[in-house]
Amino acid sequence: MPFGLVSAWNKRRRSKSRDHSDPWIYKPAEVWQLEDQTPQPTKRRHGSNVFTLKEMESATYSFSDDNLIGKGGFGRVYKGTLKSGEVVAIKKMEMPAIEGEREFRVEVDILSRLDHPNLVSLIGYCADGKHRFLVYEYMQNGNLQDHLNGIRERKMDWPERLRVALGAAKGLAYLHSSSCVGIPIVHRDFKSTNVLLDSNFEAKISDFGFAKLMPEGQEIHVTAGVLGTFGYFDPEYTSTGKLTLQSDVYAYGVVLLELLTGRRAVDLNQGPNDQNLVLQVRHLLNDGKMIRKMIDAEMARNSYTIESISMFANLASRCVHPESNERPSMKDCVKEIQMIIYTNTKGLGMVMHSLRML
């Protein structure tokens, strides 16, 4: 049953009040469900596991700072170990009541019904009193931004960055395809910190609290407010309030630029004209000479070919095009990244062959 989680949720609630004005008060299943859902039987993962507050405290050594692995506007993320011995990531929600409850329910509802190797797996959740936790699979190599910005010691070469770009594209294409829940899903907060890396540096998309199920049969949804992260906002979305699948494509293009340059999407330490990465480099992406100057200096020169870099920059420039109808689909991005990987691999192979001949 698509909403088995809701039944589990209701069994754990003890409040007798039916005052729906308080987001923490019990709500019947029909209220809990999201407006745009089209329930369909899908393959479920481990998301139906329900944990208690005591289990969350035990798993994280009472939320010890030693177990803290990330924090943001949503709250904090801790590394934890369940009674089974499984190592997990536990997100402790710390947003205002209404916003936090909405994000929590959206993420539980959507992630529990998704099944794709490039999306982070939801293992379970905790809704104990006013406490809200989400329990995910643990990703050993953290998030993409930390690797690009030097927070992590290990630097990523070009083939690894291309593999991350491909994994992220496949994850977004899956969300947009409507095959998972019957209608397309817009992530709405895709960014480099939401691209997590497992032990093999395979990319998995996380944080679905802002995700939106698109109205059936519609390609545009007009929102009352703009949600997401500064630096990744689709210009059309911010100016009109019209959310489309192409809004994710724009954000994906920003992440491509981060992969290419090693810079942040927004860097407030730079001068006023250089803070926004897209505005800084978009007009240079089809200039062969300038592209060479934008390549992240941390990448080994023998890990990339200029042809693959140029193809990658061209794709990024189309993804961040100001007009959404000029952007490729995520399905097209998957195909282009695959071609770029082939081009780079083939080019490097030819170089190695030439060196052996010397």
Rank of each mutant, 00 (worst) to 15 (best):
P2W: 15
L5C: 09
R13F: 12
R14D: 11
R14Y: 10
S17E: 09
D22K: 07
K27W: 06
W32T: 12
E35H: 10
Q40A: 12
R45L: 15
H46I: 11
G47N: 11
S48Y: 10
S58T: 05
F63C: 08
S64K: 07
N67K: 08
I69K: 01
G73I: 14
Y78A: 05
K79W: 03
K79T: 12
V87R: 06
V88A: 02
I90V: 06
K92Q: 13
P96H: 10
A97F: 07
E101T: 09
R102C: 06
R102W: 05
E107W: 05
S112G: 08
S112I: 03
L114N: 07
V120I: 13
I123M: 02
Y125G: 03
R132F: 06
N143D: 12
N143M: 07
Q145M: 15
E153D: 14
E153G: 12
R154E: 14
M156A: 08
W158M: 06
L162N: 00
V164F: 10
G167E: 02
A169S: 04
K170C: 01
H176N: 01
C180M: 10
C180L: 12
D189M: 01
D189A: 06
V195F: 13
V195W: 11
N200D: 15
F201H: 10
E202D: 11
S206T: 03
P215T: 12
E216Y: 12
G217F: 02
I220E: 12
H221V: 13
V222P: 10
G228L: 03
G231K: 01
E236F: 04
K242N: 10
S247K: 01
V249P: 00
Y250V: 04
G253F: 00
L257M: 01
G262V: 03
R263M: 13
R264Y: 09
A265W: 11
V278W: 02
V281A: 05
R282E: 08
L284F: 09
K289A: 15
K289V: 14
K293F: 01
D296M: 08
A297R: 14
A297E: 13
E298K: 14
A300G: 11
Y304A: 08
I306A: 09
I306C: 07
I309P: 01
F312S: 07
F312G: 00
A316I: 10
C319N: 04
P322H: 06
E326V: 07
S329P: 02
K331E: 11
D332C: 02
I337T: 02
M350Y: 05
L355G: 07
R356I: 11
L358E: 11
